[in-house]
Design a protein around this nucleic acid. Structure first.
Lengths: 234, 234
DNA sequence: AACAACTGCCACAGATTTGCCTAGATTTGT
DNA sequence: ACAAATCTAGGCAAATCTGTGGCAGTTGTT
């Protein structure tokens, strides 16, 4: 299965060069002019690796990077023209898996990309993805328990199934139909607010977490990580 | 059961970076400003792995490392800004299991952590080809006997088979279906609570052990080791 | 044949879960 | 600003789940 890579850089030249090299290696590449465009696309169709320039208009790369990392474990390579140690640290802090300073050789980039994929493929073989992490929460599918940081949270069967599904679709808007189908196993058009009920109870148990179940008016719900930064913006 | 990791570094930035990455991998992470603080905490609640900066005020990392190693077999990764060969040798001699020189990439650290866990988990499995150990109990699959500490426990055939299966899936939630299939060899959807019955009897025989059969409401059961420390935290 | 051990089933009580209902708050569109 | 649609929160009762003790059928042993 070919890996999917997204690139965001406002310099069309760079995009093209990086893109060509990666396509040459057999990767499925999509290019974006801005981090926001990439983020949009990612929510619709997730990819395996992201290459982000941190110097872009709009929300900068680091913000996007942080946003992605709150609820997804996609690989991220940060690219920057700045070579200050500060930026290196900040970039890494926000969760990038690797960091490259411009100008860099495309060969170098390709090497890093391959190295990252090698690493995760190795992990996948040994450690199956039993543990799902979103923000400050994690659930272990095998042992069937759920944690907020260090605190264990007791969940009922339906709550657990629902939360697992939401974790797997973090940041995506999920419709009631979808939930009924995948969590309840109901295929027909059930006219029920059962989903709301479980979510209502789930919300109570998540008050201490930064992970929140938002409601998408007239549609369904979305799992989101409350962010200090955004909170102050509101 | 998720692994518990303690980090001691006087640089809050580094602590945060390392912490975030490890949390993202599903580990239970706690951060400490000094080696002494970590040591205190460790005595109260042991962990599986420790990441220590050796350049800290107070008792330095190496001393703590030696201290920890006197009586415990916890995994230790030493982190240092020094790149002298001398320090490397000393650190390893004093019992650390791995050694990283700053600046290092978080990715590298995560990889090493996983590698260490992989190694010890592998060891445990190999040793226990026909002797399974969980907490203060062990069962010998070949001689078909079972011990709590030094005391032998008599088990009936079904009890033994069931316990063996639970030992092989320690810390995991196991459904009744699963038990019926693997212990009884029943494939169809049996509506029976035979599993509950055997476990009921098994539980009585395990009262003196720290190993407990928990029930996972609406799902099945889970074998867990009752932990003094976690108990007190509740 | 008598006996003991093992195992599955039943019924019951207590606890937990869950869907629904209703009233009040919130959002949207005109 | 107002009406209609949608969401939230509390309470309730039916349904479900679990632990317990008792019981009976089967198996193997003396």
């Amino acid at each position: 299965m070919s890996k999917r890579i997204y690139i965001a850089d406002d310099d069309a030249n760079i995009r093209f060069i990086i893109g060509s090299f990666l396509k040459n290696e057999g990767y499925q590449v999509e290019e974006f002019e801005s981090g926001d465009a990439l983020y949009e696309r990612f929510l619709a169709v997730p990819c395996d690796l992201i290459i982000l320039d941190i110097m872009m208009e709009g929300r900068d790369g680091l913000t996007i990077c942080a946003k992605l990392r709150e609820s997804h474990s996609v690989l991220i390579i940060i690219v920057s023209a700045l070579d200050s140690e500060l930026d290196r640290i900040t970039g890494i802090t926000l969760g990038s898996d690797d960091y490259l300073v411009k100008p860099f050789s495309p060969v170098e980039l390709v090497a890093r990309v391959k190295a990252l994929f090698r690493r995760v493929d190795l992990d996948r073989k040994v450690v199956s993805a039993d543990i799902l992490v979103v923000g400050d929460m994690r659930i272990n599918v095998k042992s069937r328990d759920c944690w907020i940081d260090q605190k264990k949270v007791d969940l009922t069967p339906t709550e657990f199934a629902l939360l697992t599904y939401m974790f797997q679709h973090a940041d995506q808007a999920v419709s009631r139909q979808q939930l009924l189908k995948h969590v309840w196993g109901v295929e027909w058009d059930a006219d029920t607010r059962a989903t709301d009920d479980i979510l209502k109870r789930l919300r109570k148990k998540l008050v201490d977490s930064r992970v929140k179940v938002e409601s998408v008016w007239g549609f369904g719900f979305r799992l989101a990580v409350e962010n200090e930064h955004e909170k102050s913006e509101k």
